[in-house]
């Protein structure tokens, strides 16, 4: 079970509401997919006409499934275009590149109880949680806050599951979040996934109610992405200039043009690729350089770090 990228085929696609599209993806070669965990996401490479999007979507397939991955995508008018691409362009039979599943939102295994608060499409990671908790016999409660007309959209995944409450904006149907948070026993873990405003509200209320920070979890997709804005780098020793694309690392770009750069972990930890920075301002994303070293602005780890200004000059 070693690999980085998957080639997937769209096996089924359906609208489960006017703004929600469900996709079922299988391995394009008919083989088995790597199993994935509750809370895992899949990064899809969506090759549009003008640019390539790499968007991460929560897997809603049952944890451990190897026959197919399932996702639900909401069409977001303000999105970078990935959700629009999925809603408008993708059809059954299309082939997509994807990364192996990642997980930045796994349930905490030591929890005595799991309390989930979802806002609308934010329910997706919790659909896999429910299957996981059913296997382990964990104590849990799921509160879904959504529009009234969407209250039944997720029924196919919630059927037969206890501990699920649905709330919407009407008298008697709203979720009293402060009361819910105040009533939880010691050992409870809180997970929230929804619109940013709702996430922030729940996090603030939990802190005010004395929840230990380590028991409060919020899904952030942003940190799964390693790319950023495109920039240019001049390699002084080699005398060549390279353009670093949005979806590639500086190291990958250097390698692409055939300049040899030492590296080991490719994750910003080992420090092997540390390179003198002769000019330009770095956007440091490594775990290696000390604050003082960053301050001097003279070093960079090209495996993860990028340019803050438009052009870097490296001693390579």
């Amino acid at each position: 079970m070693i690999g980085e990228t998957l080639t997937l085929k769209v096996a089924a696609a359906s609208a489960i509401s006017p703004s929600l599209r469900h996709l079922r993806l299988v391995a394009a070669d008919g083989g088995k997919l790597p199993p994935a965990a509750a809370g895992a996401h899949l990064q899809l490479v969506l090759k549009g006409a003008t640019r390539t999007h790499r968007n991460a979507y929560s897997l809603i397939s049952r944890p451990g499934a190897r026959d197919a991955y399932e996702i639900i995508v909401r069409r977001v008018p303000s999105s970078r275009g990935g959700s629009a691409f999925i809603h408008e362009q993708i059809k059954v039979g299309d082939v997509l590149e994807a990364g192996w599943p990642g997980n930045l939102f796994a349930p905490v295994r030591t929890a005595r109880r799991h309390l989930m608060i979802a806002g609308g499409i934010g329910i997706t990671p919790f659909l896999s949680y429910l299957a996981d908790f059913a296997f382990g016999g964990a104590d849990y409660a799921l509160h879904l806050c959504c529009r009234e007309d969407e209250q039944h959209v997720f029924d196919p995944w919630l059927a037969g599951k206890s501990g699920v409450s649905v709330h919407w904006d009407a008298d008697g149907r709203r979720l009293d979040i402060p009361a819910l948070l105040a009533a939880q026993p010691v050992g409870t873990h809180l997970y929230v996934c929804g619109p940013a405003a709702m996430n922030d509200e729940v996090l603030e209320l939990a802190a005010a109610a004395g929840w230990p920070a380590s028991h409060v979890h919020c899904e952030h997709f942003g940190s799964a992405l390693s790319g950023g804005e495109a920039f240019r780098a001049f390699l002084a020793k080699s005398g060549v200039e390279v353009s670093v694309g949005e979806d590639e690392s500086l190291l990958e770009a250097i390698e692409r043009i055939g300049v040899k750069a030492p590296c080991l972990c490719r994750g910003g930890a080992c420090g092997v690729c540390v390179t003198p920075l002769l000019d330009g301002e770095a956007d440091h994303r490594d775990h290696y350089l000390s604050a003082a070293e960053r301050e001097t602005g003279r070093l960079i780890l090209p495996c993860v770090s990028r340019a803050r200004s438009g052009r870097l000059v490296l001693d390579l």
Partner: peptide, 8 residues
Amino acid sequence: RGYGIGDR
């Protein structure tokens, strides 16, 4: 008496 998540 159950202890609460906010207890110290």
